[in-house]
């Protein structure tokens, strides 16, 4: 029988060498899975698939950026000068740090140190909060000078050595800021969702729902959070620097 099932492709994943008597007592194993290995792998592949839908969602914005930048390079250079690269850089470091903390949270839950993991998740949420606060100041400093997305675009005034009024002489400056606000806006939305998600996971970690044997939710939230970071890694140089 075993020979029947071995072919040129790897054996079907349903055959796993897991001690099923252990599995029976695992409350988290859903009935349609054979093993928690299978359940974990499925969840993970599902998450990666979800992540690429996210990537493609953002890709639309990157296309818009590429097209308009290629058409109006001077406008984009001038408009990007008005963004504060120091705040952007700070936010980059903050997000990278939050990625680091969530990676460590997974590291420690794998070692069975749930409380360390919990505090690292809390740290991640805090860093995300910092990111949003910085973003808030960036947005308001733009709004004060009439730099709005789209039709309300009406730049004026000078602040911190940045001449917003000069933007008015660029015909396609509104496009840059539309793209800027939509991109960072959608990204910010993802940050908020991530905070809620990790908050939920953290509360479950605190209540002892996870262990070195079972931490799928933490790992998947981590993946999601890294993706948020990943998008920002591209947004930062494209919008603030070049």
């Amino acid at each position: 029988m075993a020979t029947d099932t071995t072919t040129d492709t790897p054996a079907a994943p349903a055959q796993t060498e897991v001690d099923l008597h252990d599995e029976e007592h695992l409350s988290h194993l859903q009935h349609h899975f054979v093993s928690s290995e299978q359940q974990f792998d499925s969840a993970k592949l599902g998450m990666w698939l979800f992540l690429i839908t996210e990537v493609l969602l953002f890709s639309g914005m990157f296309v818009a950026y590429a097209v308009f930048r290629q058409w109006h390079p001077e406008t984009f250079a001038a408009a990007s000068q008005t963004l504060d690269w120091q705040l952007g850089g700070l936010n980059t470091v903050v997000l990278l740090a939050s990625s680091f903390t969530i990676a460590l949270a997974i590291h420690f839950i794998q070692k069975g140190e749930a409380m360390k993991s919990f505090w690292l998740q809390v740290g991640t949420i805090a860093l995300a909060g910092v990111f949003l606060v910085v973003k808030y100041f960036e947005y308001t400093s733009k709004f004060e000078h009439g730099v709005f997305p789209g039709a309300m675009f009406d730049p004026h005034g000078v602040a911190h050595g940045v001449d917003y009024g000069a933007l008015a002489s660029y015909a396609y400056a509104p496009q840059f800021f539309s793209i800027y606000f939509v991109m960072t806006g959608i990204h910010g939305f993802h940050v908020v969702v991530g905070m809620i998600l990790i908050g939920w996971i953290a509360s479950r970690t605190y209540r002892g729902h996870f262990s070195s044997e079972y931490y799928t939710h933490i790992e998947l939230s981590g993946l999601y959070w890294h993706l948020v970071d990943l998008v920002w890694i591209f947004l930062f140089p494209l919008l603030y620097l070049v």
């Binding site: 072919t7 079907a12 994943p13 349903a14 499925s42 592949l45 599902g46 698939l49 839908t53």
Partner: peptide
Amino acid sequence: IFTGLNFIVTIHKMRAPGMTWN
């Protein structure tokens, strides 16, 4: 998207023993 994602994972991970790709 939900349907598609679900099906890909199902096909990769849920096949019965002996149900190879071929």
